[in-house]
Simulated assay, not measured.
Amino acid sequence: MKRTIKMGAAAFAAGLMLTSCYSYTTVVGKGAQGHQEVKKWNHYVVFGLAPVDVSDAKEMADGTQDYTVTTKHSFITGLVSGLTFGLYTPTTTTVIK
């Protein structure tokens, strides 16, 4: 019985350590020319398959022609997804102008 508990604990710890954060970056025009950031959460349901409210990077750039867009799953959004068992899966979009 003790061995099963130890193996379960080891598997759980390995699962926590082997997780990663998804990140996707797009450069528009010449890319970010400054350090001004605008962040917004994107809301998805059913493991990210159905979008509910997704940010518009062009609108977040507020008319700027050169900017960088990064969309990612961070630790916090992954935690929220895990706590809801994947029913609600947010991501974060960051626009750097």
Results as ranks from 00 to 15, higher is better:
M1Y: 10
M1A: 13
K2S: 14
T4A: 15
I5V: 15
I5M: 15
M7K: 15
M7H: 10
M7T: 09
G8H: 05
A10I: 11
A11L: 14
F12Q: 00
F12A: 12
F12K: 04
A13N: 08
A13P: 05
L16Y: 03
S20H: 15
S20C: 10
S20E: 06
S23H: 04
Y24M: 13
T26G: 00
T26A: 10
T26W: 12
V27T: 14
V28C: 05
V28D: 07
V28S: 07
G29H: 00
K30E: 12
G34P: 02
G34Y: 08
H35A: 12
E37M: 13
K40P: 01
K40M: 12
W41E: 10
W41K: 05
W41Y: 11
N42A: 00
H43V: 13
H43P: 00
H43Y: 14
Y44I: 04
V45H: 03
V45L: 10
V45Q: 02
V46Y: 15
V46H: 15
F47E: 04
G48D: 07
A50Y: 13
A50S: 12
P51E: 05
P51Q: 02
P51C: 08
V52F: 01
D53L: 02
V54E: 02
S55Y: 03
D56E: 04
D56M: 02
K58S: 13
M60G: 00
D62T: 02
G63A: 11
T64E: 12
D66I: 03
D66T: 02
Y67P: 08
T68V: 10
T68R: 06
T68H: 14
V69I: 09
V69S: 09
T71E: 14
K72C: 05
K72D: 00
S74C: 13
S74I: 03
F75L: 12
I76K: 08
T77M: 03
T77V: 09
G78A: 02
G78V: 11
V80M: 03
V80G: 00
G82C: 08
G82S: 12
L83N: 00
T84P: 09
G86I: 13
G86L: 13
G86M: 05
P90V: 06
T91L: 04
T93S: 10
T93E: 03
T93C: 06
T94Q: 09
